[in-house]
């Protein structure tokens, strides 16, 4: 079932078109990554979905809701650089936001304790937010986005500002969130998207250049690529491979040769045979799965 449908969404600032008409539908219970280089329009898109910005044209529709319904109770949103009331404590802020979202007093209390535990800032709950570190603020930001159990949680670059440990923890948190609700998050870090997401939306220069499930994209952009490492004389060996027509092209980079071939299966047999026959000092042989980064580069460059 779909949660939200976006139709021909456009946004201009002072006659410069930032978002040039994008269409997509988000399915319930999925984790969707909104990917794109800096300046692609990720933040603008999320702001329009959350209602913080009004689209120049196009529409955002929540499934099963009348057009006039206040969608804000069904969404949770974490801005890229979340700012809180510095004079409140973490617990006060969560309770305040929860009450504003219309939760009952008892429910807010229970949910606040639960979330403080979940995001890992329970120790600091009675400290002023002004004294929180960047990572703690990010966690508090995630907690406030989900406190009212929204149908769709939107997170704008939730991990970009964190150190590796914080990043890991927030990604694990996203995994947990996925079980409860639909998650849409923007990032330019491909590994993060690859790790936790089911679906990908690729945004580039205000256009949706690619979208689909992780598997679909991998398949579509799958390249016949093999990584080879020889103990010595890589250059010479690869040259001879090339002359014998075993491969199309190769690139030696960082002590590793990336080899493009026409057909993975044939090439594997031919290369292994050649290695056995000539007794070549092969150290590593790897058939490469296309990473999201390859897809990213391809999509952005095309």
């Amino acid at each position: 079932m779909s949660v939200i449908q976006v139709k021909d969404l456009k946004k201009s600032f002072q006659s410069v078109e930032i978002i040039k008409g994008i269409n997509f539908t988000l399915q319930e219970g999925r984790c969707i990554a909104l990917l794109g280089p800096n300046g692609a329009g990720k933040t603008t898109t999320l702001r329009m979905l959350s209602g913080l910005m009004k689209p120049s044209s196009g529409s955002v529709n929540f499934s099963g809701l009348e057009k006039e319904t206040d969608i804000r109770q069904f969404i949770g949103y974490l801005p890229q650089h979340p700012i809180f009331y510095e004079w409140m404590t973490g617990r006060e802020f969560l309770e305040y936001v929860g009450k504003l979202a219309g939760m009952s007093k008892a429910d807010v209390k229970k949910r606040t304790d639960e979330l403080l535990e979940l995001v890992g800032i329970a120790d600091a709950k009675n400290r002023r937010i002004g004294k929180y570190s960047g990572g703690m603020k990010q966690r508090l930001g995630i907690a406030q986005a989900i406190i009212h159990r929204p149908k769709l949680v939107m997170l704008d670059e939730p991990v970009s500002a964190l150190d590796p440990i914080g990043r890991r923890e927030v990604l694990e948190l996203l995994e947990k969130l996925k079980e409860e609700t639909t998650v849409l998050f923007s990032t330019h870090i491909l590994n993060d998207a690859e790790e936790v997401c089911d679906d990908i939306l690729f945004l580039h220069k205000g256009k949706l250049v690619e979208s689909g499930t992780m598997e679909e994209l991998r398949e579509k952009y799958q390249q016949a690529k093999i990584d080879l490492v020889f103990r010595d004389d890589m250059e010479g060996i690869l040259k001879s491979f090339s002359e014998k027509g075993l491969l199309q092209s190769y690139l030696i980079e960082g002590g590793k040769a990336s080899v493009m071939v026409e057909n993975i299966e044939e090439a594997r047999r031919a290369i292994v045979e050649e290695v056995m026959k000539e007794n070549l000092p092969l150290v590593k042989f790897e058939i490469n799965r296309t990473s999201l980064e390859d897809v990213f580069m391809k999509v952005v460059q095309s």
Partner: peptide, 13 residues
């Protein structure tokens, strides 16, 4: 200006 309104006003306020 600080951006805290962005967090408060995406709640149904």
């Amino acid at each position: 200006k600080s951006g805290v309104a962005g967090i408060i006003l995406v709640k149904p306020v």
